[in-house]
Design a protein around this nucleic acid. Structure first.
Lengths: 335, 335
DNA sequence: CCTCAAAATGATAACGTTTTCATTTTGAGG
DNA sequence: CCTCAAAATGAAAACGTTATCATTTTGAGG
């Protein structure tokens, strides 16, 4: 493969000039630039980015770590990241964690290995390196999206899960439901705790009281939503609506309810959260809370670009707005 | 950051020995290795992969280009790639194309820029570089998955779309359906042509004839499936089953059918293809053809590892088996 | 035609590895 | 204790850029 030296030789200039023609075209004479251009075309030269990154001490790439990619949420989130990355000449690399910490650590290695400059994290896990960091050390180039916790000195962008869940609960209560079940996520997760807290808050605001025995637990997957709904139905307790902490579990719940011959929303109203792409095409269309996924991605990338290694604290927090989307899975209770 | 030189100094050896201790531990004396290990731990040394890759002329990374990531198919496909990549010390980077050729080309730049060694392509587009290649040139390090076309000298792995579709059609015909509609993809795509051909083949084998006016077209998205189903219903023609070229469109079709008060499968049977994760939880559960997605990914990565730049032809083809998954969206027609 | 900043270009030292080739050390066999 | 392969280590040259500093070229103003 042709390198910068070959181009320089062919164009009759020094390699420094070739490099400048590529990086700062405005400071080389038009005539010289043309000769170089021709040489590049003739030899089909492609700059070696490894060498460039090595010398410049930056890769102009970020790695986005996500637990899985089948989640449509992930999709538009990454979309947002790409939008602003592209405008800034930054490459976006996706890394899958499957919720495993060792895989996340492997992705972080791309940063210590200098192949990427920063990590945007959409995962409940944190790389080991965060714990290794001593108080005086420079901040780690990591931005956290959605999931968050206190006591970690990193920038983050998220929604207000509590208010979002309260909005969902308020919608259900507003329709007149009084006996309301909840399908919650794992309480080990901050997001789940917040959403459950939000459900309670929203119901309380509407003067609806909560039956603690009508709370079932899942793990945010369709399957777990189905199981949780089955348990609620099997319990024999009566209820006319289910608040689900995410759409996946809501879809599972609808499936089970329908397969038992009950009807949504006539017999039971269902509301989810996240507004997955499939939510609209569920049967019936799922009422849910939409998150500004693309905006979250864009904001996360901006936080990454703004990253200041000299600041004594890296903590910054951006909270973006959510929105209630009413479809056909919720209605006033019968009679 | 500490570099190999610092380690060498601290351990009292040459940098060559440090490098060897890292890459080929078996050829350095245990005592020396230990000193080096200590130095590495003390200075928290992380090898600079850029420098290593530059020198070794290989990045040990492949880039996987996919049109989107919300497609669950993509997910397990990538999973398969990661499985075998991991075993071979190869990093997997995901690049999104959104079906856009310019974005695909940008990802290919990572290869010409030496940041990755190969490209695995799950997309109908092809990078421009394929056309630029002249007959004598060395083969491009690209492996094609699922989508394929003739006349491109590249290794590929796929399923037999024709037989898979024929299997689906055979299932429907076997249930006794005679008036069968089809929701097809864009005929510009080879995969769509093959699947439609397979549907026809399967029906012919069962002695069922095709009503050409019962063929509607979509573009493989849920939305388009919904529209296509609506057009079929609006046409006033009668039919008792719909063969959908993929699950997404099948889900859209079910949604429309249900919203018109018809029942699946009592009034209309629906079969899809791909076995998306959501297929199982559709209402009713979707009968479909499962693709060996993980195996396809694994095989694609193996083809990448086997890539031989000296071979005069790069063409290789691996075809993997599919499987019929019967759920609740198909049944014998009434009366 | 001269002068002299400003503009353009060149020579060269990094960046942090791996690898080749040369040199030193080791230890089994005498 | 010597000999001498084999084993272990070292010196230094790549890999292909970018950036610093030095040098040359340009052309406006006299």
């Amino acid at each position: 493969m042709a390198n910068i030296k070959d181009i320089a030789a062919r164009a009759g200039v020094s390699i420094a000039t070739v490099s400048r023609a590529l990086r700062q075209p405005d400071i080389v004479k038009a005539k010289t630039a043309k000769k170089i251009e021709e040489a590049i075309a003739a030899l089909n030269y492609k700059p070696n980015m490894l060498a460039a990154s090595l010398r410049r001490q930056r890769a102009d790439a970020v790695i986005v770590a996500v637990p899985n990619i089948y989640n449509p949420f992930t999709s538009s989130f990454v979309q947002g990241i790409e939008n602003v990355a592209r405008d800034n000449g930054i490459k976006v690399l996706l890394g899958l964690t499957e919720g495993r910490r060792d895989l996340l650590d492997r992705h972080y290695e791309m940063i210590s290995g200098k192949q990427a400059d920063g990590l945007i994290l959409l995962d409940i896990n944190r790389p080991t390196v965060i714990e290794m960091r001593k108080p005086g050390d420079p901040p780690l180039p990591i931005v956290i999206a959605c999931e968050y916790e206190d006591g970690i000195d990193l920038p983050r962008v998220r929604i207000d899960d509590i208010e979002a869940a309260a909005t969902a609960a308020g919608h259900i209560a507003g329709l007149g439901h009084g006996k309301i079940a909840i399908i919650s996520g794992p309480t080990t997760q901050r997001m789940s705790r917040d959403r459950q807290r939000g459900f309670r808050l929203g119901l309380r605001r509407s003067g609806v009281s909560i039956d603690e025995t009508l709370i079932a637990h899942g793990d945010f997957t369709v399957e777990s939503g189905a199981h949780a709904a089955a348990r609620l139905l099997d319990s024999g307790k009566s209820f006319t609506a289910i608040l689900c902490e995410n759409d996946e579990m809501a879809v599972g719940a609808i499936h089970v309810i329908a397969s038992r011959g009950l009807r949504v929303p006539d017999d039971i109203s269902i509301i989810g959260m996240d507004n997955l792409r499939f939510a609209e095409f569920a049967n019936p269309g799922l009422t849910t809370i939409a998150l500004p996924t693309t905006a979250i991605g864009e904001q996360a990338m901006r936080l990454m670009l703004d990253f200041d290694f000299d600041a004594e604290s890296a903590t910054r927090e951006v909270i973006l707005p959510h929105e209630l989307i009413v479809r056909d899975s919720t209605a006033a209770p019968k009679a």
